[in-house]
Design a protein around this nucleic acid. Structure first.
Lengths: 204, 204, 204, 204
DNA sequence: AATGAATGAGGATTCATTCAT
DNA sequence: TATGAATGAATCCTCATTCAT
């Protein structure tokens, strides 16, 4: 089995996966037929089944990839071990939601969330996609006593994730959302936390 | 001269609608067959079509009702014209997400969001479901100069809605979410806003 | 059971029958639902079944009536025992096909013919609808030796009926058919027959 | 690069079309279910939809073919540019109506006529199926001044078509129709026309 | 490796008819 | 007499998946 062939295989897989993602983003998992995907990626129906065991397998692959893409920047910031960098990475994620090129990704994400409600395997993937960032943020909070004393680190982490999720939803349905104003408001909130102005917080 | 009372008709409609909502919450709109709904509500297939023009019509009815249920408490609080009451109503909505009886409602909501991505009519309903509460909150913020001077009222309103949406998602996938801790954190945030401790805010 | 009631019954029956005929003419027997008829005649579904045993029964009633209406003028002319009158009655029938008010009747007739292909009971009714006029015309021909010697009376009768049927079809599909020109051509043919100008005919 | 030859595909299409024609002739378009056709042609339900967009598409294909079969002999005769040949072709068409093997074709034709009443696309096809032969015959009449002076060429053409249509109907309902006698009568009529014996006709 | 013809169960919806009121 | 809510089998069509080529 020559290496060229392996690269080709990977490229084919990618080609199919991207066509599928485009279809799923447009119409959701259950309103996209395999024929739709076949049409979109320009290969035969039979071939798709040599790369994926079936539709569910394809959905899983797409969900896994979707979360990986979001987890990466946060994980990188954590590895840098600089709290400011993590905050910056988070705000960048918020900002990226406003970029026009992100639309399909957001649409896909919402479909993933809905699928997680009913499919245990998808739910597990999505939960990991939430739990990993949450742990990263919670760890950071725990490392700063003036914050940790005032708030539940996990709850605060969930709050930041919730803000991300909610902005994502609102952006998906309404392209006129003022992303910059939203991010500025969140930024102020983050700064206030860092500055220790909350009731119960000791001044830092 | 109807031979069957209007109340009976309304009850039938409700019976069907609730069976449908239960099915949709469990399996999503497109993995729920009309047969599933028929089985769930115990009437014949044909009868469903005397009350709803089709599956899409039923989905629309359910989406409309879903948003109405959330809008009502906020609208009531706004009519009371008491800022504290509005904040309390909002926090109650967050708390209600943690009640065990709410599960199906949350699951249904996530399906609605996913459907809004691909169906213009549903998107319109969902946007109205977001825009109405947003206007209520933004108006409140505008009425308090010390807040309005520091933050974009719309952005802040979106932020609160985002928090609600995100908590809803996380609760749907993970029943172990600590709702009380989350709400406490949000409460602190709200109080800090009211207390005017944010950078840029004049002390109230 | 008072007489008034009987008249009412007949009126109801007529009301339903006419609504049904209008629907059938528009959409054919099998694309017209009982609900369509119910809507058209403004009574309830249940009531229709007190006047007709079912859809098939209604179709039969309509087919019977349809043929009766066409047979009547020919039978009247035959009873007058005047050959010229019969010819005139026939030409009048042709002319009536061109009248705008006849459209629905023609449409209905074509549906009847199609139904006669597959339903024995309807076929019997339709055959009688053809055989009766044919006998009338054939008898006339037989009574005129100079014609009967030259042509098969039955075949000639069938020919006249065929001409009627064909004109009916062409008129149904195409409202621009020149009815007057068609009738003039047939008239000339009839006169030629009467004048005995055919090969094999002795001069009258 | 089709893996299955084009001939095989065409054969499948024909297989399905012929099964459908048989069903439609037997039961009419709307009393024939897709399952009936599927049973008749021995392929799966899904496959039918790879060859036809739906039931209506199949009906259209059948109607088109039906008219083409009748138009062909007339068109061939016209191209031969011999009036006698055209007359012969017409009489042959009449004779073919009496052949036992033609039954299903006739039954199908009557269903087509009924469908033309309610479906614009079918009506267009049927009108073309009438207008083409009419033009052929009318052109012939126009080319013979002694005929054209006496009759409206279009009306005469319509008359011949009407005779064909009427004979078809009568044959469909009644297999005892004496086709030979009918054709002989029509033949005589044609000869008389050619001989110029009509009132208003100049002797040829 | 790649194709796409073929399958048949399952989808939403309609319909003639009945019967409690 | 009259209503119209209720039934459930039947209709047309789609879909994920397979396998001969």
């Amino acid at each position: 089995m020559p290496k060229v062939s392996e690269a080709r295989l990977a490229a084919r897989r990618r080609q199919i996966l991207e066509a599928a993602a485009a279809c799923f983003a447009r119409d959701g998992f259950h309103r996209t037929s395999m024929q739709d995907i076949v049409r979109e990626c320009g290969v035969s129906a039979g071939l798709v089944y040599r790369y994926f065991a079936g539709k569910d397998d394809m959905i899983e692959a797409i969900v896994t990839e979707w979360h990986e893409q979001r987890r990466a920047p946060l994980a990188a910031a954590r590895d840098a071990a600089d709290p400011d960098e993590l905050a910056a990475a988070y705000l960048d994620l918020l900002r990226s939601l406003g970029e026009p090129g992100a639309r399909d990704d957001l649409r896909l994400g919402v479909q993933v969330w809905a699928e997680a409600v009913r499919t245990p395997r998808i739910r597990d993937l999505v939960r990991r996609g939430v739990d990993d960032p949450r742990a990263i943020v919670a760890d950071l909070v725990r490392g700063r006593p003036e914050l940790a004393g005032a708030v539940d680190p996990d709850a605060l982490a969930r709050l930041f994730i919730a803000v991300y999720q909610g902005l994502m939803l609102q952006t998906v349905w309404d392209e006129t959302v003022d992303n910059a104003a939203f991010v500025r408001t969140v930024e102020m909130l983050v700064e206030a936390l860092t500055a220790g102005v909350y009731p119960g917080q000791a001044a830092s």
